[in-house]
Nucleic acid binder design. Structure first.
Lengths: 351, 351
DNA sequence: CTGAACTCTGATAGCGCTAACCTCGCCTGC
DNA sequence: GCAGGCGAGGTTAGCGCTATCAGAGTTCAG
């Protein structure tokens, strides 16, 4: 009762063979053109590309994978970084792995205790992943790193504060970024600057503080006040209270992340201080809170999507190398950060 | 100079054949067991499952796809919903489509004007997607919907305020959710309640207002004050000022989303009002801002991940139906919302 | 006790693509 | 003039899985 099909399923999608037929070449040549390989005459290449466009041919990733790639399955363990971070991160991961034809496996790590982390890692191992990408803060978890290394799974950490010789990572230079931001504050004319440290269990915290101190060394007339924070909004509230209680108030406060910077703004407002006229507040990370608040925060932006993509790329290279028998040295990829100037910073009010 | 491999590439991954050999059955039977098909004797099934566990076998998605699925490529156009929303959404989309072996294609729609939207849609069409999932606010864009319909691409909208007969959608019942929240406020004892409307170009705004009004009808002694907002933080600031300027202040304010609720808290604090003792503030959406603020917001939570997954599932069913020649009626999937009680709400202070 | 129907399982043939090998023609050097 | 090399293709053989169909065995009505 149906029209009789040549073979089993209906396929009305155009394949590499259709293109080959139209272009008058073999499928292999089409494959070469599509994959941008050499050893194809220019005229042939053009003919193929014409046919590709004509038919609106899009390669079947599944088939390409099956035929070429060595079954790459990439695991991502995410705990709870800011949602804004995660979404950008996922977009980067997705774009890159879709293009490279890698299979993705997301695993959520509910709590940040060793047991939960081990369970998450185990789930990935059970799923036979070939590599794992770790966004922060898991990229600095010893438990996770050790478990993966023990299982012999290639791993790339994203946004670790420092490079360590046993883990490839993609990161911005936290120290330089903090130094840039501090110099920006000094250039605006600030000489009393408060700094809120990040959580001590993340190396980025120390790096940012180091950068801050380094910049100040070039301005001997500047005074700094450093207080502890823990990357959370409440810890920022407390730190801000402490900084603003000083007998001589700072004219600028540099918080180690945006959440704490937002808390500083909140405290300033409650004390009747105008931001930025009475107090400049700057953050770090450029998460969504920096633009949903008023005034929008001046902060340091990391190219999260690009970093995630770079991590996938690095991971693919490492697994490929491992398959060839080589044991690649861990790589340290540093991507450029940018200083985003918004409305929460200005020169200090003249005394 | 290398060891001589039987055929081309090295494959050290265990396949369905390994399992079949160990279990002493044919690969086809293993496939049946793994895919949970019937017509397999219980003893056989157990033997296979044992072998699967023994070898830690995980099916190769690419191969499964190539052999079975009809080349499903799902497009997602995201513009800029809150990052928190997007990340949850992406997690849901990824989990579901990875499981179903669908290829994913993300496209960002930079601006929210018809031209940018048309370009995004065109990119998807050029990539030969078989279906598209639209997160808000694009799920309510006429431009996008019409362009996709014209191209004959199956589409599912997520979190549209209402069901419309030409587009399948997955959503919560905004009206009922707003009604629930309002009833919650009434139950706490509030009788003067301010409401901040959402952007008029989204149907959810009207639905939420309708729900609010419906709940109030059961409390004739309650007084409501409704002002316009636009889902943004600044618009929330303005709306809050207006509500709190009234000669008799409301004891509770229900903002149509969390950003505006956050703005209300900000204004309240600036006026020296304690939240929730002097003013209860509740939001809608449960985005990350609701927990990064102090006090954390009582709000309505949508199961975003589950909705995204449901959308993918629905889309797959529709494309499959379309392939069989059937033209499926658009479906309206309503998922349950939940009221999340946090610290921004309490009974009104006794007069 | 036979044919029909149904259950379980295996053999075969690809899905769309590419790795590895092969062929053919042309150029180069001696 | 011929070995050797190289560039531009084609040929073959799968990648790991499943649709399809063809049995073999089993059940059951008549």
């Amino acid at each position: 009762m149906q029209m009789n099909r040549s073979t089993r399923r209906t396929r009305n999608v155009i394949t590499i063979n259709d293109v080959a037929r139209l272009a008058g070449v073999s499928p292999m040549t089409v494959s070469r053109v599509v994959n941008d390989e050499k050893n194809v005459r220019e005229s042939t290449r053009e003919a193929v590309l014409l046919a590709v466009r004509e038919l609106n041919y899009v390669p079947n990733l599944a088939a390409r994978n099956l035929a070429s790639a060595e079954h790459v399955r990439i695991g991502v363990i995410y705990s709870n970084p800011s949602a804004a971070y995660l979404s950008e991160f996922l977009v980067g991961v997705l774009d890159e792995s879709a293009g490279k034809g890698a299979e993705l496996l997301l695993v959520k790590c509910e709590a940040s205790n060793p047991d939960a982390e081990r369970i998450s890692v185990q789930r990935l191992i059970d799923s036979a992943v070939t590599g794992v990408v770790l966004p922060p803060p898991l990229s600095e978890s010893d438990t996770v790193r050790e478990a993966l290394q023990a299982a012999g799974i290639a791993t790339v950490g994203v946004a670790t504060g420092r490079f360590r010789s046993d883990l490839s990572c993609v990161r911005v230079d936290d120290r330089a970024a903090a130094e840039d931001m501090t110099r920006y504050l000094l250039d605006l004319g600030h000489r009393r600057i408060g700094f809120i440290k990040g959580h001590p269990n993340q190396t980025a915290s120390a790096e940012r503080l180091t950068g801050f101190r380094a910049a100040l060394r070039h301005a001997p007339d500047a005074k700094a006040e450093v207080v502890q924070g823990y990357f959370t909004f409440p810890s920022g509230l407390e730190a801000a209270e402490r900084l603003l209680d000083a007998e001589v108030r700072p004219t600028a406060i540099f918080a180690s992340n945006d959440d704490m910077a937002a808390a500083v703004v909140s405290v300033a407002h409650r004390r009747g201080l105008d931001v930025p006229r009475d107090l400049t507040v700057v953050g770090f990370d450029d998460t969504s809170i920096s633009t949903t608040l008023w005034p929008a925060l001046t902060t340091v932006r990391q190219p999260v999507s690009a970093m995630a993509a770079a991590a996938i790329d690095l991971l693919l290279r490492e697994t490929r190398a491992a398959k060839d028998g080589r044991t690649p040295e861990p790589t340290d990829v540093i991507v450029p950060h940018t200083l985003v100037e918004r409305q929460s910073s200005s020169p200090p009010r003249p005394a």
